[in-house]
């Protein structure tokens, strides 16, 4: 439905770098999860990362907002380098929104409180203003009428849309999506993807880990394929799906597209 609009927006990615990752390594104990990642994400660029489970794609985006710590190399987000400096880390986290596979809404707070919490406590926005912003974004994800319910009273798709709105309330410059539709019932996947497409149209910088290849084809500027902790292939969606370069990419695509 939105394909045309998205393609119109396709050329928008600028040359300015939003995220720079240089020769980044990460180990879990002895296990070398990320083996020399080099990646530059431009402003307004939309990247889809796919790959078999255990390939390190989730770990990669979790490193970008320091939910995981990298042990070698550099990560620079919007000019701020991620170091062992709490102030820096909090600054980066304010700029980077994250949507999780399991939504991770705060079950003890109403929807509107879930959304207003970050702006009030982190951005120090007055309560009333934060709630207005919250309502604005709830409206955007088509769920304003649920504002005073608790997360447990919503369906999975609704919860995920709330989670997206919660991140947006912090007015992030980048949005990270960690398999946002994997925990959803099939009939709810579309409503979440639609919200993500709307975000794309508005020019949000996005990195999405997903297996929704339809989404990748229509929305991404670039598709990355990861395997064994490395970025094996990086290409435009057209070339990625029609002329994959590497054997491993071909194998993976043949497995998921059939």
């Amino acid at each position: 439905m939105d394909e045309n609009r998205v393609q119109e927006a396709q050329s928008e990615a600028s040359d300015e770098a939003m995220i720079e990752i240089v020769d980044m390594h990460k180990w879990f104990g002895e296990f070398h999860v990320l083996q020399g990642i080099n990646l530059t994400v431009h402003k307004k660029e939309r990247i889809v990362i796919c790959g078999p489970s255990g390939s390190g794609k989730s770990t990669l985006i979790r490193c970008i907002n320091r939910l995981e710590e990298h042990q070698r190399g550099r990560i620079i987000v919007d000019g701020i380098e991620l170091l062992n400096n709490l102030k820096n880390i909090e600054k980066v986290r304010m700029e980077v929104g994250m949507v999780f596979q399991h939504f991770n809404l705060f079950p003890h707070l109403t929807i509107i409180d879930n959304l207003a919490l970050g702006p009030i406590w982190v951005r120090k926005v007055p309560k009333k203003e934060a709630e207005e912003t919250a309502m604005y974004y709830l409206d955007k994800v088509h769920i304003a009428e649920q504002a005073h319910k608790f997360p447990g009273q919503l369906s999975g798709g609704q919860q995920q849309r709330v989670a997206i709105a919660r991140s947006l309330c912090m007015s992030p410059k980048v949005m990270l999506f960690d398999e946002p539709t994997s925990a959803l019932d099939p009939e709810m996947i579309k409503e979440v993807l639609d919200v993500m497409i709307e975000l794309a149209v508005e020019g949000m910088t996005m990195i999405v880990v997903t297996h929704e290849m339809g989404f990748a084809k229509s929305v991404a500027h670039r598709v990355l394929f990861m395997d064994f902790g490395q970025i094996v292939e990086s290409n435009t969606p057209g070339d990625f799906f029609d002329h994959p370069q590497h054997e491993r990419t071909k194998l993976f695509l043949s497995q998921i597209l059939n």
Binding site: N65, L67, R93, M98, F106, L117, G118, V122, R166
Partner: peptide, 21 residues
């Protein structure tokens, strides 16, 4: 659950606010 800490951290809440709120 671990995810609650992560969601709070990814919003930029520090450890004190994460615990308290």
């Amino acid at each position: 659950p671990r995810g609650q800490y992560e969601a709070a951290e990814s919003l930029g809440l520090n450890i004190y606010l994460t615990m308290r709120l």
